[in-house]
Design a protein around this nucleic acid. Sequence first.
DNA 1: GATTATGTTGCAGATCTTGCAACGACCATT
DNA 2: AATGGTCGTTGCAAGATCTGCAACATAATC
Lengths: 288, 288
Amino acid sequence: MSQTVDRALSILPLLAEGPANLEQVATRLEVHKSTALRLLRTLHEHGIVYRQPDQRYRLGARLFALAQEAMENLDVREIAHPHLAELNAACGHTVHLAVYEEDEVLYIDKVESRYPVRMYSRIGKTVPITVAAVAKLLIADLPEPERRAVAERLDYPRYTARSTPDAAAFLNELATVREQGWATDLGGHEESINCVAAPIRGAEGRAVAAMSVSAPNVVVSADELLTLLPRVRRTADAISAEYVGRPLTPQRDSTPRRDSTPRRDSTPRRDTNPQRGTNPQRDKRAAP
Amino acid sequence: MSQTVDRALSILPLLAEGPANLEQVATRLEVHKSTALRLLRTLHEHGIVYRQPDQRYRLGARLFALAQEAMENLDVREIAHPHLAELNAACGHTVHLAVYEEDEVLYIDKVESRYPVRMYSRIGKTVPITVAAVAKLLIADLPEPERRAVAERLDYPRYTARSTPDAAAFLNELATVREQGWATDLGGHEESINCVAAPIRGAEGRAVAAMSVSAPNVVVSADELLTLLPRVRRTADAISAEYVGRPLTPQRDSTPRRDSTPRRDSTPRRDTNPQRGTNPQRDKRAAP
DNA sequence: GATTATGTTGCAGATCTTGCAACGACCATT
DNA sequence: AATGGTCGTTGCAAGATCTGCAACATAATC
């Protein structure tokens, strides 16, 4: 919508790949050097990009700080963390928490495995959406039309022989997942890694996040991992309970649910609302 | 420099505080609603902001992903990590890695304490610059004029009775740190937490990062923690050695150091270059 | 059902952005 | 030391892009 901003933002993913100098940026943006310079200057002033001693640009500290601050404000994360830690303490494996947002699923929390052989992942990373157990859960929970739309839009990379091959297979899998209320990924992303996942549900019963336990074959077999399923589901349910439990504001609000009325489908429905009222300024509107 | 981009970027810190609706954004930006809307739309298209079901905006997934990707590309981090892990394995305490960038110091890596009582921190968080041991090291290493300039610019919040009170005290402390080549924070930020830190030096001998070991009083006393100093310094030196060791590109380059010539001080000198050539696209220019 | 509160769109004026071209700094080569 | 090349920086004029307005749309509230 805004050309200038559009261009400026296009610089970001470019720099995420690694430092670049003015000309490289200008070339890839397909604009004149001077234009690129001014955009970069503005980004620099905001601390979003940093200029190295060798004059090349890379993403800056404030970007990290922003992402950090935003992440810390996610309510599910806060509530879930102790439960995840507890589960990890019990089984020792890597525990993840993930949310869905506009065709992407990303980890927002993680408790590291206590085994020496671990799965690679990082908070903030997007997960392979067509195969990850948490992703399947979150997409499976979308209303039918959007679920289908998402499935069609996606790519289906063949990470392994067991990766989901195409949209049809994915939708099938989603139906199963939806039915059973939990999901697995048995070597769909990394041949030797398995996961079991369960959804965390908010006030209206919609999945606001999903959690999973992952472990490589060399530590436990897929069958052994599956024996953890009840425990994983119990943990997820406990988090859900606590999540819906907390009222929006300490002094209860008039009509906290506005999603309960059936809505016409003119706009495709967006979901996942992992953010709720702990933030002080939130109450401003209700005050005077 | 660019008004539109400037405004758009100003939205980010605002949303980092918590979700906000269109009007709130417009008000705080001091622009018309329609203007704010268009900016938000553009940010949305890039996935930088996300629109919740209740129409409010918050920071989006792509922002996390960007920060994540950029962080993973930091070379020092990559090299340092195994060393940090090793140190943690030996002593059990929290180990941090931090870099300096334009008046801010932030953690770029961390290995969690294995003790139940832990220090709170998070990768990507900025550290209290006037008291943290790693911050002192990094600032102490700046060339004199800039060091002074930074010291003057800073605020000196009194976290505890032992916090650095003002610029003068800070500069004094920096002189000591510079002299001895290591630093501590003994209850300067949190009454009960102590840290020891050592610098990681790059090719030109400048500090490109700093690492620290932190532990609460209840686990080990400050004196006990100080006995770890030699070990911390050895680890930092090992990282430094490996960091300068790796040449810029596998096939060695002509003149890898361009900082070695004394430079006139017309522009205040920027430092810290924790980013070096592992990235494939980097070599593009050298190719044809 | 009227009323408020919020978000959205089309439009015309003007600001702000753009690309150009020339300049300057720096490096490398002869 | 001189010359040529690369890359970043600046002033300017043309005009594309952005802005604020006002009216409209929609949903919540009384």
